[in-house]
Design a protein around this nucleic acid. Structure first.
Lengths: 267, 267
DNA sequence: GCAGGCATGTGCGACAGCGTACAGACGCGA
DNA sequence: TCGCGTCTGTACGCTGTCGCACATGCCTGC
């Protein structure tokens, strides 16, 4: 099988590209092996590379006051790290940490910017992904404000499972606490509750999702919102994306109703 | 004074444009009068217009679970509403509400997209603004998670003052509660505390900032972070932007250090 | 000048999450 | 097999916020 076909199967953002573009872009990438908890990017450092995870996945971490932190995004083979480059900025306020060991395609930032100019389809795809990213940030802001730990944990497990492509993955409660920005003990409680309800099983960091459907109803609506947004922007029927089940999908964008603009009078 | 000079003075994003571009863009805008609490945009509706506030300012509201909501952005004459159009998407997950009555320049969405293609400087400016917007979303996610109401209120007052260009503005506690996503009583307490400390004075919705410096130290670091980000991306020395005082400014982007990439081995 | 509405203030019980400390449980290597 | 480090579970008092109910204060229009 030629190289580009492999890659198509493993990063779905690149999988949307026409063969010509894809071949050229893959030629500009190198495959890197990412290990668990590698720090790929330190906030406000220079953004030298973009990453297209294939079997790995990456967590976006927003630091607060130099002590706390929250995860505000998760990037697997459905996405990429390096969105700010699309806006001509080679930095980001959020850090990137490897949360699932595996491979990723890596491209030099400068080259990525050039490729954006050369492939209209690439730019279009990354534009849409950037929009999804934006929406997820807004969702995260609301979610961390209003939802209790247990629901956020359930959401987090679902998001992770989507990107790990397996029912079982490894993550300690300590690490989870860092992600959700809560105490470790808070995770212990929430996880115990989910386990008692038969939704997950875990043992010293090995978490198994037993009941995906149940986990979905235990999670806050943010999981579905995020998924719905992604699917609307980048196609729901991509292979390997676990079903999200029937969700209160909004109508497609083209049918959106007009904004009300009372009192806005032209002059 | 010709029209374009007026506008330059009143929306600073447009003020960065060369005269040619500016003149053409202003020709495509109409001035609209916005009234307090006008709903400019309903989440996920069709995005028909972009707004460049001049004397008005606009709040971005993220709804949650159909009952709660949080403000995740504030747009005055330093910004614009309609960032997603830059990404080719004519919708947004966040709503827009007028929070300060006044004028704004409004442009048809389709025309705005065309103008983006015609003026490199416009695209560059909006790109940078989009990055600021992105950063503010990330900041908001962290802020709503970790900071107490009083500090968030202080931040909010500073942000509002920056955009109202006055020490006094009108806002009820009820409305404030909606913005911060807390109980009205929570605002009562926080506001009382700020007043007792001599930082503000308020009376039935009329809030006066008495001690800007004190308010800054009462607020969470998010205010300074936001300001620093904006200033770095779009120039600190714009006229009419109240001083933010000495802040722990990060080095300019070009001097950012490289990301650490341990364990990332090419193969 | 009085009624009614709106804005603000107070009180109270409940609860999620915090910080901290410590005790088991498990697994791996000496 | 033992020891040690890591991961998980339990406990306790405390704080910030919630939800609700109700009291007060102020402004406006009749």
């Amino acid at each position: 099988m030629p190289a580009f076909q492999c890659a198509t199967a493993v990063n779905r953002l690149l999988g949307t590209l026409p063969e010509n573009d894809l071949r050229r872009i893959l030629a500009g990438c190198e495959t890197v092996e990412l290990s668990f908890s590698d720090m790929l990017y330190v906030p406000m450092a220079r953004l030298c590379h973009v990453y297209f995870p294939t079997s790995s996945f990456i967590s976006l971490i927003m630091p607060v006051d130099g002590k706390d932190s929250v995860e505000i995004g998760l990037i697997g083979d459905e996405g990429m790290f390096g969105v700010p480059l699309l806006l001509g900025v080679d930095a980001s306020p959020v850090g990137a940490v490897v949360r699932g060991a595996g491979r990723a395609l890596r491209m030099d930032a400068a080259r990525f910017c050039r490729e954006l100019g050369r492939s209209e389809q690439l730019e279009r795809t990354i534009d849409r992904y950037a929009f999804v990213h934006l929406s997820q940030l807004a969702q995260a802001a609301a979610c961390t404000r209003f939802h209790v730990v247990e629901a956020r944990l359930a959401r987090w497990l679902l998001m992770t499972q989507d990107r790990a492509h397996a029912e079982t993955f490894h993550i300690t409660q300590e690490f989870l606490a860092l992600m959700l920005g809560v105490r470790r003990v808070g995770i212990t409680m929430a996880a115990k509750s989910l386990q008692r309800r038969g939704l997950i099983r875990y043992k010293r960091g090995d978490i198994t999702v037993l009941d995906r459907r149940g986990l979905k109803s235990a999670s806050c609506g943010c999981y579905r919102s995020d998924r719905a947004c992604y699917d609307r922007m980048l196609g729901a029927s991509l292979p390997g994306w676990p079903d999200c089940g029937p969700s209160p999908l909004l109508p497609p964008l083209v049918n959106g109703r007009d904004a009300l603009e009372p009192g806005a009078t032209a002059r």
